[in-house]
Design a binder for these strands. Sequence first.
DNA 1: CTCTGAATTCTTGTATGCAAGAATTTTTCG
DNA 2: CGAAAAATTCTTGCATACAAGAATTCAGAG
Lengths: 244, 244
Amino acid sequence: MDSPADTTPLAALLAQVPQPEPGRRKGALHGSTVAKLRNLIVTGALAPGAKLNERELCLQLGVSRTPVREAIKTLTQDGLLCALPNKSSVVAELDVGEIEALIDVVSTIEGLAGELAAARATDEAVAEIGMLHYRMMLHHTRDELPGYFEANKAFHRRIVELSGNPVLLWIWELLALRVDRARYSSNLWPKRWKMAIQEHEQILAALTAGDAALASQRLREHVRNGLSGLVAALKDKAAKPDSA
Amino acid sequence: MDSPADTTPLAALLAQVPQPEPGRRKGALHGSTVAKLRNLIVTGALAPGAKLNERELCLQLGVSRTPVREAIKTLTQDGLLCALPNKSSVVAELDVGEIEALIDVVSTIEGLAGELAAARATDEAVAEIGMLHYRMMLHHTRDELPGYFEANKAFHRRIVELSGNPVLLWIWELLALRVDRARYSSNLWPKRWKMAIQEHEQILAALTAGDAALASQRLREHVRNGLSGLVAALKDKAAKPDSA
DNA sequence: CTCTGAATTCTTGTATGCAAGAATTTTTCG
DNA sequence: CGAAAAATTCTTGCATACAAGAATTCAGAG
């Protein structure tokens, strides 16, 4: 009846997304549709458990069912949607247990990334990551949540890239989708920010020193701390459901 | 002109795949098409670099373009195909560098799985994994390559399942696709078998003892050994291209 | 003979039509 | 009035039609 999703002002949210001009080139619909839909899910605009009606999405997104169906398939594979045969796909539940499972995997993955990155860290690469760190701090001082998120993610992403391992980056991107979802879901937890910034600086130091073991350990613990805080926030939120 | 794929007896290979009866139930075409196509790629029946013509695949698989296109999208996301806009998708190259990248990631992932699994290992679970190990040995003594592959994979898979971490299993499945491809590509390397069996026994012992650190380390090294041998075999093969 | 370019053919990207299964509503019987 | 069943409506799964871009071929000029 009145699942959370039914009250979502979907049209308004979609209006914010820049619509591709009618004079667009061929082959861009799939990608853009995936991006739009993914954004709606990750940011929580489409609530967990919400049913996706293909025809309705077509109208909202202004495309035919083909790209919509492809996007649904793609996001199902990414684990953001759940699909049952002959039934509407639904937005995957944001299970706290699953996020706890994410902790072990993401921390291990980023730990490996740190280990490999430290061995390949040039001054230039470290400087670039440092810049991302300062950008994050800037957004922090300004209380700009989206910018903070973005810079934080870029910081971590750059380290994974620096590892030079394309498979690692691929896996990390997949995991990052779920982490982002959890982040958006648990409204900001500013307590954690200061600690995160300190940890980033220590990670940078380890990379600068080229100390693989230390970089690995610090990244592992940093990720573990962050995600654990996230789980705590989510459990808190679950305890007192709608104390806005 | 005559790329390796053009000479592939595709029709014959597909004939081996049991065709779903006309009286099948709806909703199974996508999955079965993905499975068939994936098998062709993983086993090497569709050679790396081969161009996939959608219409041709439709004829071969006996379905329309819709499920074929969905399957292509899915396998592209899995990294088995490469797609460029408005161009035919091609089977992803089996880059040795990428397999070397896999070594670090898969060994780390399975190491984590071993660590978590050891902490949860019941007698029953260990016995089940032991059974898979003996099944593998049986296929070994009979020189049955496919059975050996299957049992080996089941052994590893069961350990990841035992970890109780669904995210870990999800990632492992993705990685396993690429590992399987590499395995099929480098024809059997029997030298490795005996060593692998010994390592499996040691892994089992660590699981039985519930020693998380040991299980983790042994799995990590076992995977590293296996994949390193695989890379060596592939490099060997690359050096003397077609010495059948 | 070769190179350029235009026209044709082929292939993919997108939209839509049709049928099977699911959900819902209505109707009928107890 | 309640419940079960039948019919209607709705939704997805698959097939196909059409359009835009890419590849190929063929002709003509240098």
